[in-house]
Every structure is written in structure tokens, then in C-alpha cells.
Design a protein around this nucleic acid. Structure first.
Length: 824
RNA sequence: GCCCCGGUAGCCCAACGGCAGAGGCAGAGGUCUUAAACACCUUCCAGUGUGGGUUCGAGUCCCACCCGGGGCACCA
């Protein structure tokens, strides 16, 4: 036995070189296409190249790698690719600051992260590496955009968008944090701009429906978040006639409560929608304009507050309620959203709190049409929304439940031709334009005579012009607009003078299809090879952060469905199963620069080595839970690894020795461990799997020191299993063990240990005898004992008899072979 | 305000409705050592947030509440 300390860094250097030469994790398309091996696509969210890898990257990839390596051991052909989501704002900011090109920052960081990933020993297939900022990649992002546009799924419209007045740029929703610009902290306002959108709403129903299947294999919170985001609601469209200065206009409102139509006492339209100005009486136009300007100025902080007092302006016109002919006033307010439903509502203050608040603020009438038995909202100013008896409601009077009420009024409206049942979604179309440099140029040319013209496929990619430093500073329009040589071009259709679209795409477009590119990277003829994509897709597991519960995961699902409709893909869902890891925190708090509580991955690797850090991350707890680095012990992990490694030196039998003659007890423990480990990995219970391996290590140590001894074949069997199981978590140590056991690399591509089913059968089990649920005796019995025999054995037990003395037995519950409960 | 998730030993975490403890961290004692570290062995420690209910039997299922974390929040 060697006494020397485990030199982790020397071991890392030694095996890293061997693995580089062996390249053991290259996925072989042919094996999958030929049906020789079953495929497993292990996908993990690709990183953004900002600086070197941190604890978060270490955690995701350590967890992910357990799954990928497990599948290799189980004999699958595993596709485990990695790349970089390399367009985006941080590189642009760095470029402005350092007067350089964003590519400099981006590709330097990619190299750094690449080296770190390799050292971290993750079983990635590096031959499939991709970067979304490479022209070879974004050429196909542009191609996809054009295909979407051909199908009417990419279009331009004028709409209010998030605007940072300080940075002079449009912001994505996710870049607005608590109503402020995440970059400069300025309060975000709205601005009306013509922008490109993807028509994701066309897929709203399918995106919702397919969640049903995903709910079995996706985390609940992700499924719920997507359901909420899509936000399907059922109701009705109701047509009101508004009497304007220039004649009657039909205005359709959307409501989920058409049954309260008789309680509508006014109508409200979104103040910032064109409809408001159209309906407004001439003498009220000035007031409306003043109000809209105020609304525009309001920051998101104010707009988001539900305690905000209701404001609005009377448009000076009335509308006719289609069911009772009543004339009700029409108002404009910012509490009605322009882009949801029809941008207009019928207000029923008695049964909707928001309408009631508005009615109160503007002294508008309130009329109760459902008597729920609660105090009258006309007096309390507390709206009632439950079931009750309809009053003052024409054909609804006497009905006492919402479902019948809605059904009756909807039929009534449809009969009159003034309304019909309708479905609405909260989901909006996806705004993809960005006034930024470091992204995919939108491949469209604007021509005075031809209008919007897509760049022909043979002219792709439309590459970015060379800009750096100050040229990238935000000026209110995209930096690309200032690159005159680039922006001025000829129309592909008529050959006349034209300009390029100066915007770039949201980086979420890049990441909506990268998992398909991995299936045939470097393909110059297509975005992806359909045959290969069909062979590998869907990804069997997608490991990543829950922060993408809605955006990225919804967009990728949308892309997949469109591509399936284009006939390029068979699957309609990209990710069969999903695992969200928690955060690595420190002393109960998220690591952050401002708190100064960050844990540097590099220094942890330096101190404890790759394997100990990986083991700590995997063993800390369930993968979804946060890991508090202050509460775990990488030093303890390292001690365990040393313990495991030492076992390999104590094995004195030769490789290939017949294990059937080995120590039975140890062999049983080994067999049990292998069987449990498989189940635990498949349930993502990696921490428990590690605990089982620890048990096996302890049992083996005991066998060597005070049991059958190191020469027993069962010891070799156990230690080989330890090496194989440990290879999923601590690849360097496992490889070193495997080598010391006399095997060739690499243990990661060895096999899943075979288990003799006979070893899983127990000779005897401990049966517990309870009286009134309290344990009174334990019996060693055969696992296949009959209920009658077990009961008899229990009754015959001395301690049981003593406890039963003078008691009347009322019932005996027997759960053979483990339990007898006697009720007295 | 609404919706999720969680609360088991000093700490992190295990426990098909059936003996509350698998594993680890920290602590104590011991063996080894000139001594220490390492290693090895032994060991202390809770009745499962609170109150009800279902059951022969509840950490586990149901109800209410408390605490912690996360998400959504003028979507008509």
C-alpha cells in the first residue's frame, strides 16, 4: 500500500493527455443510422462566453456528465455536444470600453472556456463544437429567418416596445429588471417602433397542448410557467356600436364573462392604441393627447404596480350595448392593454375589481347583475366574481351558475349576430429586432420600388461590417445604420439602389435551433441534415437553468414545430426530458460581485482537484436544490477519493480472475450497489447514487482489512465496480483506479458491470413484529415465508407472548416477509 | 394578492404508508506516530415546523396554520 498523498494535479495531467489521444466520446452517426446502437442525445444549455467558467457552469456540466457517461456505459451511442451562444451584449460593451472588436473578447473567452471544460473532464464530443457568431452558423440563422418569412411567420409591424432613454436602444423584456435597464439602471419607457416579429402566437394552442405530454418528464415549474405564459382563456367577442362624430363604428370587446353583459356600465379602450383616437370626440382630442403623453412617460415601475390609482379620459362618445340597447360612455385608460384581446373592454364594475376601481375613481355607475349572497358591490366597492343568481339580466334571470350563464348569453349573442364564443391567449408575438451590432444581421433589403426584399439564399450570409470601439456606441439606431458602405446596396429584385435592414436578431433566435446544428455540424448545404437530425432528435435530456423556463424553451419548441411543418424534422418537440439544476450559493446568498461572496472555481480546482469539486457538486444534494458552498466539504470529497483509490492498490488478484468463488457477502453488496446505482441515475438521484458507492467503498475496505482479504476475487470485483461507477462523477480518479487494477483506458468506455440476479436474492430478512404499531420483536425469516408461517413465528416469540399477556387480540396484520402487526 | 417547492440530528441530506438513519460534514474517544498530519476504528446527537384527520400503522396521504425559498401579478 502506498502512503504517498494523492497528487491530483499529476493524475489530471496524465489522463488528460491520454484522453486527448483516445478521443473516446465521439458520437458515431453511422452506428445510429445503421441501427447498430441505440442513440442517446444528452444536451446541456450552451454557455455565453463571458470570462472563464464559474461554479454554475461546473455544477451543470458535472450533473449533466453523470447522465452522459452513464449512457455510454450502458452501451448507447451518446451525442453530447457543446458550443457557445456567442452573440450578445457583454461582448459589445467590452468592445466599446476597450476600443476593439466584439469578436476579440468573444473568441478569447471561448478559448478559455474550452480549455477549462476539457480540464474539467466533461465527456463532450468536441468535433461538433459550434459558435453562433460564426458566419458559417449565422448564415443558416438568416436562412431560417427567410424561410419563416416565406411562410408568413416573420413580419414587420409598428408597436410599442421597451426603450432605454439613456442607452438609446430597444431592450428585450428580460433586459428590463424591475422596470430598469439592466445596463445603466435608467427607468425604461415605451416607444413606438417598426420592428420584426415572429408569429409564435400562431402556434399558441399547439405549444399549450403539447405541454400535456411534457408534463410527465419536464419539471412541474417549467410546465406551469409555460402554461401561464401562454395564458389561454375562453370567453366571447361582443360587438358594441360606438357613435362617433364621423358615424357609427363597430367595436368588438373580448371578455371572459359575457354573462355579466347586462352589468356593463361603460366601455374602456387602451389609451395608446389607434382605436382611442379614432373613437374620440373632436372636443376631447386634446385631453386624450395629453393623457397619452403622460402614459408614455410613465415608467414600467409605475405601470407594473397594481396599487396604482386608475386614470383615464372620457372620449365623449357612447356605445350601444347589443343586448339591451343601453347607451354607455366610452373611456380611454392605460389599465386596458392595447395588445391583448381587442384592446377594448366592456367594464362590469360590480363583478371585476379593476373596473370597480375605475368606476369609483371616475364616479361611473355600478350595477350588480349577479347576487352571490355577498354584500352588494354597489355599496362596498368590493367586486364579487363568484357564482350567484342573475338579476336584471334578461334571459339570464333565474340562472344560478356561471357555466350556464355563459352558455346562454353566448348562444343569445350568436343568434343576434352581435357576438360569439372566443379564445384568447396572453402570448404575444416574439419581437426579434435589436438595434445592436453583435448579432445576426436581418437578411432583408429595403427597396423604394420593391419594398421589403429577402436576401437571396445564394447571397447568404449577410456578414457584419467591421466596426469597433466608439462606432458601436448606442445612438438610438443600430450601429449598422452608420456603416454606409455596408448599408447601401442594390435591390436583389430590381437592381436599383436599396438599403439593408440595419437591425440584428435577438440572440434567442440563435439558440432556438443550435441543438439541430449539432446533429450535422459544418454542413455547408443546409442548416442541418434532416436524416441525421431525425436520427438523433429529440434530445433525450436537456440539462440547464430554470431561468430559461419560458423564453428559450418556448422559442426552441416553436422553432421545432415550424421546422416540422416545413418537412425538415419529424419530431415536434425538441426536448424529451429536462433537468433543472439549482444555484451554487455561498453562506445562504447568491454569489455576487457586490456582496463579495463569490467562490472562484479555478482556486477550488487548484486546491482540491477536478474530481473532488465535481464529486462535491454531485453529492451535495438533489440536483434541483441549491448548493451552499459554505455547507459542503470538497476536502471531505477528496478524502473519499483517496480512500477509493487506495482500494485499487490493495487488490492482489489478477484481472479476469473468476469472481464466482469470491466472498459471497461482498459480492452481494456489489451486485446490490450496481443495481441501485442504475435506478438512481435514471431518476436523477445522483447524490444517493454517490452515497451507495461510498457504502461499497466502506464495505470493501472492511473486507480487505478484517474480512476475506485483498486476494479474494470479490474484492477485485467490488473495486472494479467502484471505478466504473465513480467514472461518472470523478473521471480522473476512476481512470487511475482502472489503470492500477491492470486495465487499459478508458474506464468511461468500459461496460456497465454485469450483475448475477442470484446475488440480489436475500437469504433471510428481518421481520418486525409490532404490537399496536410498536416494535416488540425482530425475527430472521426466509424471504419467501408464507403469511401463516410468519404469523405463527411471531406468536411463538417469547417477547411477543409476554407483551400479549392478558390482552385480547383483535386483529393481526401480516405483510410477509417483513412485518406483523398485532392489534389488541 | 395568487400559484408552486421545501421544513428530518449542530449542519448537508436518506428513508415502496411498515424498525426514523443510507452517506457525508462537524464534534468526542481511541489505534498508529517522538509529535502532528494522514489513515483506520469506535462513538455522542433528533422522533420528522404546529394543530387536527384518515389508517392496524403517518416523516410519507388529507385539511388548516406557521416559517423559508421561488415564480406570477391591471391579460378583462
Amino acid at each position: 500500500m502506498s502512503d504517498e498523498k494523492y497528487d491530483v494535479h499529476a493524475t489530471e495531467a496524465k489522463w488528460l493527455k491520454v484522453w486527448n489521444d483516445l478521443d473516446p466520446f465521439k458520437a458515431d452517426d453511422a452506428k445510429v443510422l445503421g441501427g447498430h446502437k441505440q442513440k442517446y442525445y444528452a444536451l446541456t444549455m450552451f454557455p455565453y462566453p463571458s470570462g472563464d467558467l464559474h461554479m454554475g457552469h461546473a455544477e451543470v456540466t458535472a450533473l449533466h456528465d453523470v447522465i452522459a457517461r452513464y449512457r455510454w456505459l450502458r452501451g448507447y451511442e451518446v451525442l453530447n455536444p457543446m458550443g457557445w451562444d456567442s452573440f450578445g451584449l457583454p461582448a459589445e460593451n467590452a468592445a466599446i470600453k476597450n476600443n476593439e472588436h466584439p469578436a476579440t473578447y468573444t473568441y478569447a473567452n471561448i478559448e478559455t472556456q474550452y480549455e477549462s471544460f476539457k480540464k474539467f473532464g466533461i465527456s463532450f464530443d468536441w468535433s461538433r463544437r459550434l459558435h453562433t457568431s460564426d458566419p458559417e452558423y449565422y448564415r443558416w440563422t438568416q436562412w431560417l429567418f427567410l424561410k419563416f418569412r416565406e411562410r408568413g411567420l416573420a413580419y414587420r409591424k409598428n408597436s410599442p416596445v421597451n426603450w432605454c432613454p439613456s442607452d438609446q436602444t430597444v431592450l428585450a423584456n428580460e433586459q428590463v429588471v424591475d422596470g430598469k435597464c439592466e445596463r445603466c439602471g435608467a427607468e425604461v419607457t415605451k416607444r413606438e417602433l417598426t420592428q420584426w416579429y415572429f408569429k409564435i402566437t400562431e402556434y399558441a394552442q399547439e405549444l399549450l397542448d403539447d405541454l400535456e405530454v411534457l408534463s410527465k418528464t419536464w419539471p412541474d415549474r417549467v410546465v406551469t410557467a409555460q402554461r401561464n405564459w401562454i395564458g389561454r382563456s375562453e370567453g366571447a367577442h361582443v360587438d358594441f356600436t360606438v357613435h362617433t362624430a364621423s358615424g357609427d363604428e363597430t367595436v368588438t370587446v373580448y371578455t371572459t364573462r359575457p354573462d355579466t353583459l347586462y352589468g356593463a356600465t361603460f366601455m374602456v379602450v387602451a389609451a395608446d392604441a389607434p382605436l382611442a383616437a379614432k373613437l374620440c370626440a373632436p372636443e376631447r382630442q386634446a385631453a386624450l393627447e395629453t393623457y397619452v403623453n403622460e402614459v408614455r412617460k410613465a415608467s414600467d415601475i409605475d405601470r407594473l404596480s397594481s396599487e396604482r390609482p386608475k386614470t383615464g379620459v372620457d372620449l365623449g362618445v357612447t356605445a350601444t350595448n347589443p343586448v339591451n340597447g343601453e347607451q354607455i360612455p366610452v373611456w380611454a385608460s392605460d389599465y386596458v392593454l392595447a395588445d391583448y384581446g381587442t384592446g377594448a373592454i366592456m367594464a362590469v364594475p360590480a363583478h371585476d375589481q379593476r373596473d370597480l376601481d375605475f368606476a369609483k375613481a371616475m364616479s361611473l355607475p355600478v350595477r350588480r347583475v349577479i347576487d352571490t349572497g355577498e354584500p352588494n358591490p354597489e355599496e362596498t366597492f368590493v367586486a364579487t366574481s363568484g357564482d350567484g343568481v342573475y338579476v336584471n339580466s334578461g334571459p339570464l334571470d333565474g340562472i344560478s351558475d356561471k357555466v350556464s350563464g355563459i352558455r346562454t348569453i353566448t348562444a343569445d349573442l350568436e343568434g343576434r349576430g352581435t357576438g360569439k364564443g372566443a379564445v384568447n391567449f396572453r402570448l404575444r408575438d416574439w419581437l426579434l429586432s435589436r438595434q445592436r451590432y453583435w448579432g445576426v444581421p436581418i437578411p432583408v433589403v429595403h427597396c423604394e420600388s420593391c419594398g421589403e426584399v429577402g436576401v437571396p439564399e445564394d447571397q447568404l450570409p449577410v456578414t457584419l461590417p467591421e466596426l469597433r470601439g466608439a462606432d458601436l456606441k448606442p445612438k438610438g439606431v443600430s450601429p449598422l445604420a452608420a456603416a454606409t458602405d455596408w448599408i447601401n446596396t442594390v435591390c436583389p429584385q430590381c437592381g436599383g439602389a436599396a438599403t439593408r435592414d440595419s437591425d440584428t436578431m435577438d440572440t434567442f433566435v440563435d439558440s432556438s435551433w443550435y441543438f439541430l446544428r449539432y446533429c450535422s455540424p459544418g454542413n455547408d448545404n443546409a442548416a442541418f441534415d434532416s436524416t441525421l437530425a431525425n436520427a438523433w432528435m429529440p434530445a433525450d435530456i436537456y440539462v440547464g437553468g430554470v431561468e430559461h423556463a419560458v423564453l428559450h424553451l418556448l422559442y426552441a419548441r416553436f422553432f421545432t414545430k415550424v421546422l416540422a411543418d416545413m418537412g425538415l424534422l419529424e419530431t415536434r418537440e425538441p426536448f424529451a426530458a429536462q433537468l433543472n439544476q439549482g444555484f451554487v450559493i455561498n453562506h445562504g446568498k447568491k454569489m455576487s460581485k457586490s456582496l463579495g461572496n463569490g467562490v472562484h472555481l479555478g482556486s477550488q480546482l487548484e486546491e482540491f482537484g477536478v474530481d473532488a469539486v465535481r464529486l462535491t457538486l454531485v453529492f451535495a444534494g438533489p440536483p434541483e436544490d441549491d448548493i451552499d458552498w459554505a455547507e459542503v466539504s470538497p476536502a471531505g470529497s477528496l478524502r473519499f477519493l483517496q480512500r477509493a483509490l487506495r482500494l485499487a492498490d490493495d487488490v492482489t488478484s489478477e484481472p479476469g480472475v473468476d469472481v464466482t468463488s469470491g466472498d459471497l457477502a461482498l459480492r452481494k453488496t456489489t451486485a446490490r450497489t450496481v443495481t441501485d446505482a442504475a435506478e438512481l441515475v435514471e431518476l436523477y438521484r445522483f447524490n444517493v447514487m454517490v452515497a451507495r458507492v461510498m457504502e461499497l467503498v466502506n464495505a470493501t475496505r472492511k473486507a480487505i482489512d478484517s474480512g476475506c482479504g485483498g486476494a479474494d476475487p470479490a474484492v477485485r470485483e467490488a473495486v472494479e465496480v467502484v471505478a466504473q461507477l465513480l467514472s461518472m462523477v470523478a473521471p480522473y480518479t476512476a481512470e487511475e483506479m482502472w489503470s492500477r487494477l491492470g486495465h487499459q483506458p478508458t474506464v468511461a468506455r468500459s461496460t456497465w458491470p454485469e450483475v448475477d440476479p442470484a446475488l440480489l436474492v436475500q437469504d433471510s430478512v428481518v421481520a418486525v413484529v409490532q404490537i399496536q404499531g410498536k416494535v416488540r420483536a425482530r425475527l430472521d425469516v426466509s424471504p419467501d415465508i408464507s403469511a401463516a408461517d410468519l404469523e405463527a413465528a411471531a406468536m411463538a416469540d417469547e417477547a411477543v407472548q409476554k407483551a400479549l399477556e392478558g390482552q385480547q387480540i383483535r386483529k393481526v396484520i401480516v405483510r410477509e416477509p417483513k412485518l406483523v402487526n398485532i392489534v389488541v
